[in-house]
């Protein structure tokens, strides 16, 4: 399983904090996972198509071309606003 986390405004708009995705032992890239998530419903399609979406795999910022596999923690979130 891949554990997928959503944060901040994205978490609220998706009404989802955590999502588990089975990948049957395959190595996927983040863009493929994102495409699967977008297909869940119209709202997810819209929110996960935002061009400013950031992504982290195992708590490191990565581009959408990064790979993910079983046991990984994948997170999507809006641009950060700390400080």
């Amino acid at each position: 399983m891949i554990k997928i986390l959503f944060f901040a405004a994205l978490r609220e708009r998706l009404e989802c904090e955590q999502y588990l995705l089975s990948c049957d032992g395959k190595i996927l890239n983040v863009a493929t996972v994102l495409e699967q998530l977008r297909n869940r419903c119209n709202n997810w399609q819209q929110e996960l198509s935002r061009t400013d979406l950031l992504c982290a795999v195992n708590q490191q910022l990565v581009p959408l071309t990064a790979s993910v596999q079983d046991g990984d923690e994948l997170a999507f979130f809006p641009p950060v606003t700390g400080g």
Binding site: F7, A8, A9, E12, D52, A56, L61, F77, P78, P79, V80, T81, G82, G83
Partner: peptide
């Protein structure tokens, strides 16, 4: 770098409602 790379998000609670701060 903290303002661009560290995963924090601010939500303002105002008299008009609650708003996520835009980057």
């Amino acid at each position: 770098y903290l303002k661009n790379r560290a995963p924090f998000w601010k939500k303002e609670h105002t008299a008009q409602g609650d708003y996520w701060v835009e980057a």
